[in-house]
Design a protein around this nucleic acid. Structure first.
Ligand code: SF4
Ligand code: SF4
Lengths: 167, 167
DNA sequence: CAAATTACAGATAACATACTCTGAAAAATG
DNA sequence: CATTTTTCAGAGTATGTTATCTGTAATTTG
């Protein structure tokens, strides 16, 4: 698979958060439940994102994690970078170290354009856009057994008692 | 990584064989040495290719493996299919089971075109083309410590005592 | 037929990834 | 200040991939 499982979880969680009407602290427990991901494992994954400065966390009741920047300024590549590293965008089909035009493999020409296209795509896809799409009908975010955001979302909207968003 | 290590080895070996002037039995030992791959491991990998009908093998002295079809009728996708399976071409960025337009994830539109492009590319790249390119100057096939085909190739050209190519 | 050379088969070990569990530390709430 | 809720930190487990090793079957050569 192109992305590691950890990375997929991180991306799904990020899109889930971006799909919410407002940027507020969400408990990892809720995300894990909603996306059908192991809670403890997701915790570890998301720590990468907070350490990378993409998210901020807040402990205690009503705490959780929130996006550190507006959804329009976080893209797919940012998240992949933080979890899997940027190797995917630079390494080659054959995984040879020290690739380059000076010493190319037989597939270099084709692959390098492919790779660049992928990098472009992941840079273009912002959380804003992905979050919007996730809110559309018949769009699913994960292999969830439960349909996307039932009462949870409404609760989040009406619930005004939130921890301060600025660290 | 997109391809497993096994798959990379298989592709490298196939290109190496395609780069030879004639389609003749080559000892796996030679390929492993030339491409800097563990012999026993490469053996296992190449068994996938013979079982898939892409290569034929012959035991005993002067035996080895050879391409089962002309280089022009074997492409990258064939080899990837035989070793890693065709999942890469059909599975998605998020690895969700049962993907489709009816129940898409937020990245479907972008990713499905990306994926199709990749599949196309791997279908277009025949061993004939890849072998040709491998023979060009400054092109390398693997992370080899030894420069590509020194005396080995000349020996293969001049050596006329070969096992019968038809099984 | 004996010896050498090769692919084939299967067991085992080393390593990485994916996942689980336990116990802390921080913050709110009453 | 005790209790609850949350993230944080790290050990431990399970599973799969990668690599190694040992032996066997097929084939040629002399
Ligand atoms: S030459 Fe290009 S395609 Fe080949 S391994 Fe290097 S970067 Fe990748
Ligand atoms: S909807 Fe498309 S991109 Fe998303 S998981 Fe399915 S096939 Fe992949």
């Amino acid at each position: 698979m192109l992305l590691s499982k950890s990375c997929v979880y991180g991306v799904q969680a990020a899109i889930y958060m971006a799909s919410l009407p407002r940027n507020e602290y969400v408990a990892i427990q809720e995300i894990a439940r909603e996306l059908n991901i192991s809670f403890h494992f997701l915790t570890k994954v998301l720590q990468n994102l907070t350490q990378a400065g993409l998210m901020v966390s807040y402990r205690g009741p009503n705490g959780g994690i929130a996006l550190a920047r507006p959804t329009s300024s976080i893209n797919l590549a940012d998240i992949i970078d933080a979890i899997d590293g940027s190797d995917i965008f630079h390494e080659c089909l054959f995984g040879l170290p020290g690739c380059g035009i000076a010493d190319p493999c037989p597939a270099h020409e084709n692959w390098s354009t492919m790779r660049a296209r992928l990098h472009n795509l992941c840079h273009m896809l912002t959380l804003e856009e992905l979050g919007k799409r996730a809110n559309q009908l018949n769009v699913r975010l994960a292999n969830a057994s439960v349909p996307m955001k039932p009462a949870t979302l409404i609760a989040a909207i009406t619930n005004s008692s939130q921890a301060p968003i600025e660290k």
